[in-house]
């Protein structure tokens, strides 16, 4: 099959969180290749530096080291992004904590940290983009990386599921509130994608468990690249009439 070319993103300034590795990194690389001007955020400084080296050609990439569990600090962070790269057209929130913790051992601080990074940071980023000082005024697009765990359950995923289901719900209401400003808000719900985050989890499984989990995906495990293609489609004008939706990119996991 031939390749479908989403519309270019030249002249658009997009903020990508969690950009040092995994889905965030592949997303940053793809949006940059499509011509976008990027501000990339991660708490892993070395990862950002190596991403910067990977993106040395083309539009400038502004790096910002920040821990997004500091919700109160996000407004200032977004302000720094605007100061450095101009007002924003879009935000892609890929940062996330994916911890498997049985409810019996789950601690208040633990689930609050998951909820802060996965969900509250997303809300604060959406809130910031709704400001005229931040939003460039056209081609607005927000994409939250949710998860199939926002729709179905899994043992040990209580806090993670909660954080991702909340994202899906937030996107629906936020999309209605921001539609009049021309900002679209959508989620992407990936299944199990081979990322450093996933490999941490995978190491805890024996061969049999690993095979069983992979078998839950009719197309097998995915790659971060697969999710990045979907982000590009939603951010570009190809997704012009899509808002308040969750795009499932899961190799068939939820269809079974």
């Amino acid at each position: 099959m031939t390749t479908f070319n989403p519309l270019r993103l030249d002249g658009r300034h997009i903020l990508v969180t969690g950009a040092s590795s995994g889905i965030g990194r592949r997303t940053a690389v793809m949006l940059h290749a499509l011509g976008a001007r990027l501000s990339v955020v991660d708490r892993d400084e070395a990862g950002l530096v190596s991403l910067g080296a990977e993106l040395s050609a083309g539009e400038a990439v502004a790096q910002h080291v920040a821990d997004l569990s500091d919700i109160a600090g996000i407004e200032a962070l977004v302000g720094r992004c605007v100061d450095a790269g101009g007002r924003l057209h879009g935000v892609v929130h890929c940062a996330g904590i994916q911890a498997i913790v049985p409810v019996r051992t789950l601690q208040i601080d633990g689930w609050r940290r998951i909820f802060a990074v996965n969900t509250e940071a997303a809300l604060m980023l959406g809130k910031c983009l709704s400001s005229r000082k931040v939003y460039a005024g056209q081609h607005g697009a927000i994409v939250f990386i949710s998860s199939v765990m926002g729709t179905v359950g899994s043992v040990g995923a209580v806090a993670y599921s909660m954080s991702k289901a909340a994202l899906d719900g937030m996107a629906r209401s936020l999309s209605l509130e921001l539609a009049s400003r021309g900002i679209r808000v959508n989620c992407i719900a990936p299944g199990f994608v081979r990322t450093p985050l996933f490999e941490q989890t995978e190491r805890l499984w024996d061969e049999e468990t690993k095979r069983a989990v992979e078998d839950l995906h009719p197309l097998g495990f995915g790659e971060a690249e697969d999710v990045a293609h979907a982000v590009a489609f939603l951010v570009a004008d190809t997704g012009r009439w899509i808002t308040g939706s969750t795009l499932v990119v899961d190799g068939g996991y939820l269809a079974r």
């Binding site: 899509i242 499932v248 899961d250």
Partner: peptide, 16 residues
């Protein structure tokens, strides 16, 4: 091919 890992999905395109 950019959707090579998408199957079984109901993709809503409905302006919200």
């Amino acid at each position: 091919d950019q959707a090579r890992w998408i199957t079984g999905h109901q993709m809503v395109v409905d302006g919200g």
